[in-house]
């Protein structure tokens, strides 16, 4: 497709009060499956089993009586949420380093000061632009450094 999207065919079983999905981990990461299933604990009893290596079975059993249309809607909602979880996982994996770096800088960086201190530091830094003491001039070039001891 022109926008790079691709289609996945998701097959499920429709039972008397439940819908079941057999999901291959190569297509649907386990964390995405768990994340999607967890969101349904208010509406359904959630059963996770492993029918074979590399497969996770998700069975959503309605908490009360349910019509076929309601079960089909439940399956559709689960499919949508599974897709959301897969996208979330991709975004998270692609951006985790940026996020971790941001969090580290926010909470563990040397810059953890009050905003007024930060402002004063900023003003001090501006004074350095004049650099009368030539602090920004590399050590070696200033003639004060001793190369090779």
């Amino acid at each position: 497709m022109s926008d790079g999207a691709d289609d996945l065919e998701l097959v499920y079983d429709l039972g008397a009060r439940a819908v079941s999905f057999d999901l291959h981990e190569e297509l649907y990461a386990k964390e995405a499956v768990y994340g999607a299933a967890y969101l349904f604990v208010d509406r359904a009893y959630v059963f996770l089993t492993r029918p074979s290596d590399g497969h996770v079975r998700v069975r959503l059993r309605s908490r009360g009586a349910a019509t076929e249309d309601q079960l089909v809607a439940l399956a559709g909602e689960f499919a949508n949420e599974l897709l959301n979880q897969m996208v979330r996982r991709q975004v998270s994996e692609a951006t985790s380093q940026i996020r971790e770096y941001t969090l580290a800088r926010a909470f563990f960086g040397n810059d953890g000061r009050a905003s007024i201190d930060a402002l004063l530091a900023e003003l001090d830094a501006e004074d350095l632009d004049d650099d009368p003491l030539e602090i920004e001039v590399p050590w070696e070039r200033s003639g004060q450094g001793s190369v090779g001891g």
Binding site: D7, L8, E9, L10, V11, Y12, D13, A75, L82
Partner: peptide
């Protein structure tokens, strides 16, 4: 058995 097409 039913199926749903997901557009990823």
């Amino acid at each position: 058995q039913r199926s749903i097409t997901l557009r990823r």
